[in-house]
């Protein structure tokens, strides 16, 4: 099973460490510049979307199949504990004070955890199922159950999914993988 792991200090692709210099928020930008580089929309994203975008790019590069061909049979399904907390906190700061009230649509749109699934669908032309499930805590058994259940959709043959959590710009963890229908 192809797998990518990223946290604030560590990056592995199929359990092999990926060389990098930066930590925290700068790590995601470094990974983008060194391994992707052709998708400037990256810089508009919230941290959860940046994390999911970079992790999915590394995963799909490791898969080594032709990219960007429209398909409906691959679902994108993530889980986490914090939903869109980083984006929510950032948006709240724009409305906290009556004297300094400047709500922004560009910030508000990311206050939904499933936006990252849409970012990955847009990048890869995936017309299949996209879903985001929030759990009280990370639970591998529940995640496995829900991912296996997703194959009950007869169109879904493959899932890009896993754990994708972010509490603030410098604290995040992704462990995502590609699953095929058994």
């Amino acid at each position: 099973m192809l797998k990518v792991y990223i946290n604030t200090e560590t990056v592995t692709v199929n359990d092999k460490p990926l060389v990098h210099k930066e930590k925290g928020a700068a790590l995601l930008t470094e990974l983008y510049r060194n391994h992707i580089g052709d998708y400037p929309k990256f810089f508009k994203m919230d941290t959860l979307s940046k994390l999911g975008f970079v992790a999915s790019e590394l995963l799909l590069q490791a898969e080594g199949k032709p990219r960007f061909e429209p398909r409906e049979d691959r679902a994108v399904i993530f889980f986490n504990k914090s939903a869109s907390l980083q984006a929510d906190t950032a948006y709240q700061a724009t409305i906290q004070d009556a004297e300094n009230f400047f709500p922004s649509p560009a910030a508000f749109v990311y206050t939904l955890p499933n936006i990252v699934t849409g970012e990955i669908a847009i990048r890869n032309k995936y017309f299949g199922e996209t879903s985001f499930i929030v759990l009280p805590d990370r639970d591998p058994q529940i995640m496995a159950r829900q991912l296996q259940n997703a194959f009950l959709d007869p169109t879904t043959n493959s899932i890009l999914g896993g754990w994708l959590d972010c509490t603030d710009e410098n604290h995040f963890e992704a462990e995502i993988y590609l699953l095929n229908k058994s």
Binding site: A83, L112, P113, N114, I115, T117, T130, S131, F132, I133, V134, L135, P136, D137, D139, I142, Q146
Partner: peptide, 9 residues
């Protein structure tokens, strides 16, 4: 059981 929360906008 652990509840699951679906948060798809």
């Amino acid at each position: 059981n652990t509840p699951i929360v679906v948060s798809n906008a």
